[in-house]
């Protein structure tokens, strides 16, 4: 018991110390509504950001706020500078202590799941938690614009988003005249997981000139029936793989071995980092996917040199 009390006191001492050592932030705040519909009060001038997802880290750098990023996750490996930033654990198990010690003014989170206790702990430390939850490519672009606005780089963010939109439209225009390909998007083979109605990837497949055969399945990432996948007769299979996925998901599920896609060898591996991170590089993923699905249309779009320069 004594030991327990002692531990509590030490904890209290630590937390109050951290609260005290936090410098007086700019008193000017404003209220915004995040993508989960929560009202969040944030300082007008944000200089210390912690990102809890690789896609958000990429957005922070894309809107030229990378200099304010003081913490990110073990998975945040792009752009290269992101690796040098202090790590707070991974997306699923962030260390609250480390986050608080970094004295951020805002913590960026992708989707609101499993974070209630975590959010209230940060709330007690007067750290704002901003949730993003894009369900389509357009919502990703809007996330970029909103975050740019929060960090005071609105003009820059708008120009980044405009450029990304232009590239996305170019892909759509190029694939408009071709016959859509029936696509099975294999999130994992054993057990079989795919993308459903609520996934932004379903929208991405459509824009790349494909039709996801699981577009109407409820959920974002449903566990899917082997038989139903085969019976859907996909003409192409997309395997998000490589990148931080390592050696996972490199082959089409055994259940699909008699599908037209496997019989015609239309299995396309696309860098998972481009597809599973709803950030600025999602458009790269879109272009790769469209090129894979429609080799004949590939010549009509591409990254402009200006874009690749900005990415750096």
């Amino acid at each position: 018991m004594a030991l327990f009390l002692c531990a509590v006191m030490v904890t209290l001492a630590c937390s109050s110390q951290i609260t005290l050592s936090t410098p007086e932030r700019s008193l000017e705040t404003r209220e915004v509504v995040d993508e989960a519909g929560r009202k969040v009060t944030i300082p007008v001038k944000i200089e210390r950001i912690v990102s809890l997802a690789p896609n958000l880290t990429e957005i922070v750098y894309a809107v030229d706020a990378g200099g304010s990023l003081v913490g990110n996750t073990d998975y945040c490996d792009y752009p290269a500078e992101a690796k040098q930033v202090a790590k707070i654990g991974d997306t699923m198990h962030p260390s609250v202590e480390r986050i608080i010690a970094l004295r951020p003014q805002i913590v960026l989170v992708s989707t609101a799941s499993q974070l209630e206790a975590f959010t209230s702990q940060l709330g007690q430390q007067r750290i704002a938690v901003y949730v993003t939850n894009p369900r389509s490519l357009e919502e990703v672009f809007r996330s970029i614009e909103t975050l740019g606005d929060l960090f005071g780089h609105s003009d820059w963010a708008v120009s980044v988003a405009t450029d990304l939109r232009r590239r996305a439209v170019a892909v759509e225009v190029a694939t408009r005249s071709v016959k859509p390909v029936k696509v099975f998007y294999q999130v994992s083979g054993e057990p079989l997981y795919t993308i459903g109605r609520e996934a932004y990837l379903t929208d991405l497949v459509r824009r790349a000139g494909g039709i996801s055969v699981t577009a109407e399945v409820p959920d974002a990432f449903p566990r899917f029936s082997d038989e139903a996948a085969l019976a859907a007769r996909p003409d192409a299979i997309i395997l998000p793989s490589g990148g931080s996925m390592g050696t996972a998901n490199l082959t089409a599920a055994a259940a699909l071995k008699n599908s037209p896609a496997v019989l015609n060898n239309r299995i396309y591996k696309i860098n998972d980092d481009l597809l599973s991170r709803p950030g600025p590089r999602l458009v790269d993923g879109l272009e790769d996917m469209a090129r894979a699905l429609h080799p004949e249309a590939a010549l009509q779009f591409g990254r402009s040199p200006i874009t690749s320069e900005r990415k750096r």
């Binding site: 997306t91 054993e190 057990p191 997981y193 566990r223 996925m245």
Partner: peptide
């Protein structure tokens, strides 16, 4: 599961509850 890479955790949580698909 914590030690293993994140992409395999999902399939493991499913497997722990019993999963009969994808047998060899």
């Amino acid at each position: 599961t914590t030690l293993m890479d994140a992409t395999r955790i999902r399939s493991f949580t499913f497997w722990l509850l019993g999963d009969l698909s994808g047998t060899t």
